[in-house]
């Protein structure tokens, strides 16, 4: 943790979640693997933040570290304030008390994320019974209410269904019902639609957006799908090798990315703003976390790299109101924005 980085952020008006200098290290044989390195952000109730980035950039680990849901080999550093609670210092009992009630998670695979040998009604009721100390019949009543909330057809009958008796879309609705059953204020959704058919994906996304607005939850959303991200998010944090490299309002970042990695990512993905036939993959591969390049982690793949880039890791600095990027050269005239340019050779603009 860098010195002097102890900004008191708890109790900030309107801020529900504050993350400061979050880091995660996995202790493996030999060298520890630093998967997350100095992540900072704030989130308000009712706001949706999306993590974007290539596979292995640390989206899942960041999200899970917020509720300490990581294997025992993980060492989490930094501060996570949730509604004024210092989450990373909680003991096991207190941590359990906020899981499900303050923070809930939706997983990618609704088939394997539900217990196959209990009915879905039982699984939802159990969470309610455990957290609220109510009777099982009250828990069951809540389960029915939740299934109706997530628009499961013939909900009463589905209470006694086992996960394998439901379609993928219904299972994911059940997962959402389960996650929301104790009215959490922060929802963590890790690629909640990736395992579903395209048409079902849209239904689930619409449902999530609707619920999120209705219940006023803060939401963190991980996806590989830029279209999905645009649809559902207010803000975006682009991750590269365990760091945020660009943050800002979703629409602004999509329309005018500043960090060379974000530019590359947008150029290599189909999304609303992209032009047909102009897809250009970023050359090279993400760095090995055990053998990181000095300075900017993106330097080996960056088309605008200069010698200074390898000297030190650039800071995440504000480049416009509400927007930050981790690259000192975003303001340089040599930096371009995506546009009708040949693949790999973005021309300067403005």
């Amino acid at each position: 943790m860098s010195a002097g980085d102890h900004t008191p952020v708890d109790g900030n008006a309107g801020t529900f979640l504050s993350v400061r200098n979050l880091s995660v290290e996995f202790q493996s044989e030999g060298m520890p693997l630093r998967a997350i390195n100095g992540v900072d952000f704030d989130l308000h109730l009712g706001e949706t933040l999306c993590f974007l980035g290539e596979s292995g950039s640390g989206k899942t680990v960041t999200m899970r570290s917020l509720v300490q849901l990581l294997p025992p080999t993980a060492r989490i550093g930094g501060k996570v304030w949730l509604d004024g609670i210092d989450v990373l210092t909680l003991d096991a009992d207190r941590l359990r008390a906020i899981r499900g009630t303050q923070v809930s998670m939706i997983f990618q695979e609704p088939m394997t994320a539900l217990d196959p040998v209990f009915t879905v009604g039982h699984q939802i009721a159990e969470v309610v019974v455990c957290h609220e100390g109510v009777s099982w019949s009250t828990g069951r009543a809540r389960a029915l209410e939740m299934l109706e909330l997530v628009q499961v057809p013939s909900a009463r009958r589905r209470l006694d269904a086992y996960p394998h008796e439901l379609s993928g879309g219904l299972r994911q609705r059940v997962m959402i019902a389960l996650a929301l059953s104790c009215k959490p204020k922060l929802l963590l959704a890790d690629e909640p639609t990736t395992a579903l058919d395209a048409t079902v994906q849209i239904q689930i996304l619409l449902l999530l957006r609707e619920l999120q607005r209705e219940l006023g939850m803060a939401t963190i959303f991980v996806t590989h799908d830029l279209g999905v991200a645009c649809e559902i998010s207010d803000r975006v944090a682009v991750m590269y090798a365990g760091r945020f490299v660009e943050t800002g309002a979703m629409a602004e970042v999509i329309d005018g990315p500043r960090h060379p990695y974000t530019i590359g990512l947008l150029n290599s993905t189909v999304h609303a703003g992209s032009e047909r036939g102009k897809l250009a993959p970023i050359p090279g591969a993400p760095p090995d976390l055990l053998d990181m390049p000095p300075g900017c982690a993106f330097a080996p793949r960056c088309s605008r790299v200069v010698a200074a880039c390898a000297e030190r890791v650039p800071d995440l600095v504000e480049v416009a109101p509400g927007r930050s990027a981790r690259c000192p050269r975003t303001g340089d005239p040599g930096i371009s924005l995506p546009g009708p340019t040949p693949p790999g050779f973005p021309l300067p603009r403005e």
């Binding site: 509720v67 849901l69 941590l95 359990r96 008390a97 906020i98 899981r99 499900g100 009630t101 809930s104 998670m105 997983f107 695979e109 394997t112 994320a113 539900l114 217990d115 196959p116 159990e126 969470v127 455990c130 957290h131 997962m175 389960l178 996650a179 104790c182």
Partner: peptide, 14 residues
């Protein structure tokens, strides 16, 4: 090792 155990933990079951 199955994933549903993580769901149980994520939901704060004792």
């Amino acid at each position: 090792k199955q994933e549903f155990v993580q769901t149980l933990q994520a939901n704060g079951l004792p």
